[in-house]
Design a protein around this nucleic acid. Structure first.
Lengths: 345, 345
DNA sequence: AAGCAATTTGACAGCGTTGTCATTTTGGCA
DNA sequence: TGCCAAAATGACAACGCTGTCAAATTGCTT
């Protein structure tokens, strides 16, 4: 019933240590030996015991995914991306949702790391942006990869453990798309202030306006959060009193915000996109389930997170030279659907 | 830096084994000794090493959550419920998304269990309903708890490792709600045929109609899946050609389906709830983000899954007699929002 | 105060793997 | 052929905890 490394060793006629070498893809095992061992592994359907490996080895066979994000679609995508890499590598994934502003977060964090002796961590925003956390991890000597909002040039000068999503470029593109449709009163319902993505997206928006000589008007900015409710509130606020600013388009901080704006527009009997264009950000399944479907910027979270895991593993394990360079910047690309249209007057 | 059980033992002036007893809440430790040990644990901020516990102990300190469900909200709720229990108990959670109809699912399944030596499993539908899986687990001697769709009376006669959600009752209630609003041409866009919840919800719907002497009409049934797209298709099919059946209400198999139906209605310029009532099922955040907001049946997935974990632990560990009875049936309760209204003609 | 069962504690050997370091084998070269 | 460095393999002791079983302590009872 229970097959140990010892059984395999006996069957293959080698020592346990050699089997261990094969399992761990260590170099300096003769091809012939390797084959013998693999043969035995298959024959016995041997599965290495993770607990024993964790205990005996220097680093454990588990990585953690840390997030503080209410967006279920985002989280699931992240999980699945990391998970698929973990399966390939024979690692376990320990998920760690948390609240970044809670008192004992840091403590819980350390508890988890100590308990599981994690080989590394994938940090998602906004936690990946908190210097205090980064410092703590450095101090503890924990490997980690950060998912961050940032631009291509930033990526080059950055430490080698970051994955960037170029929100700036994406926001620029979306804004330009709206401008090309004839909009010049474009409002923006921003996400959480403390998220770097909020600043990046705002910067992209601003620069696009500037590039097209459209005057900036901060009364068109609504400072909200990355939530549906915030989208509703923001749109209501912006369009209140008969839309004094003559807004013709609203950029949502993300798809949920955009959906919220859509909801508000409906309440106010505003036609989308006839009277008002709305765009999202992220391309979560969400954006295909609103009416009308959202124009948005596609961000492949599952692929991004898979890359993050890949990068983490490349630092963690035997530093195999073949997968040397891992790409570090992802730029969301625009998806035009039905929520944006040419401006009419 | 690294605190072991041995350090604690020394500080507390007892043996390692005694510390172990305290950590594991085993009985027969004198109060005084217990306090001493706990004191030392705190002082050193000792965290038991999971890998070592797993390796040395009979059962491991990790449970698995298995799901095959495209609904992100559902999955996240499940995870969080189970996770909160795991944290309390000092267990790890291994998440295992899978595809129940894939070839090598069973194999992957076993691999995972062997690798991690899981203490137990929480199975969600539709996997929890597959006899082949149950048999396999029984054979392997794995503890598990099943989340199932079923009625109160069923729960009593069932094995002691199931948590039931009374979809029948919920569907009955929703249907009755619609009937009381004057509807008698109530269509139903059903979920996946192989999910037991689909049959249960249909039965509830049927019995409610019967109880109110409304004739059953199977042309009002659309056999779909639990997806948004299915809701769109279903509603389109049901209402095609000028709504020959004079449908005044549509029951969605779940919230996504209902949202899809809503979407289709909008495409067809049908007013909700003026010309058509639509109801959902599950009360995912989703149902508050459609327009209009969905009437639905609230199903507290995070609480349900927490109970499942609780039940699993009660079978796994020291069978503490104090948390003897765990409730086994959850009945979703209706939440009336804006997508259902009185019938008008 | 002695005797005894019940309770509490401890010593020690594993759990299944990997790290260390010693030993054997290999293949190239004189 | 013999020698030697390099490559491949193996023996054995950890890793940090728990299970087993034996020893010590407790608190009754007589």
């Amino acid at each position: 019933m229970k097959v140990t490394i010892n059984d395999v060793a006996k069957l293959a006629g080698v020592s346990m240590k050699t089997v261990s070498r094969v399992i761990n893809k260590e170099p300096s095992v003769r091809k012939k030996t390797y084959d013998q061992v693999m043969q035995a592994v298959k024959e016995l359907n041997y599965q290495p015991n993770i607990a024993a490996r964790n205990l005996a080895g220097t680093s454990s066979f588990a990585i953690g995914l840390v997030y503080d994000n209410p967006n279920a679609y985002y989280v699931i995508d992240m999980q699945n991306g990391v998970l698929s890499r973990c399966r390939d590598e024979g690692y376990e994934l320990v998920i760690h949702p948390c609240e970044s502003n809670s008192e004992n977060m840091a403590e819980e964090f350390v508890t988890m790391i100590k308990r599981s002796r994690l080989a590394g961590l994938v940090l998602t925003p906004p936690l990946s942006e908190q210097q205090a956390i980064i410092d703590m991890l450095d101090e503890l000597g924990i490997h980690y990869v950060r998912l961050l909002s940032g631009r291509a040039q930033e990526a080059e000068s950055s430490a080698n453990n970051c994955i960037f999503v170029d929100d700036y470029a994406a926001a620029y593109e979306i804004t330009e798309h709206l401008i090309q449709l004839g909009h010049n009163k474009i409002a923006f319902v921003l996400g959480d202030e403390e998220h770097k993505s909020t600043a990046e997206r705002l910067a992209g928006y601003r620069d696009a306006l500037k590039a097209h000589d459209i005057k900036q008007d901060d009364t068109l900015l609504y400072h909200g959060t990355y939530s549906f409710e915030s989208g509703v509130k923001g749109a209501k606020a912006l369009l209140a009193d008969g839309n004094p600013n003559q807004i013709t388009a609203i950029l949502g901080g993300n798809d949920e915000v955009a959906a919220g704006a859509l909801f508000a527009a409906r309440l106010m009997n505003i036609e989308i996109p006839g009277q008002l264009s709305i765009s999202g950000f992220e391309d979560s399944p969400f954006s295909r389930q609103t009416w009308p479907k959202l124009t948005t910027a596609h961000q492949a979270n599952n692929i991004i997170s898979e890359h993050a895991a890949r990068l983490l593993f490349s630092k963690t394990r035997g530093h195999r030279k073949n997968d040397k360079e891992v790409s570090h910047v992802f730029t969301p690309s625009m998806v035009v659907r039905e929520s944006t249209g040419r401006v009419t007057q």
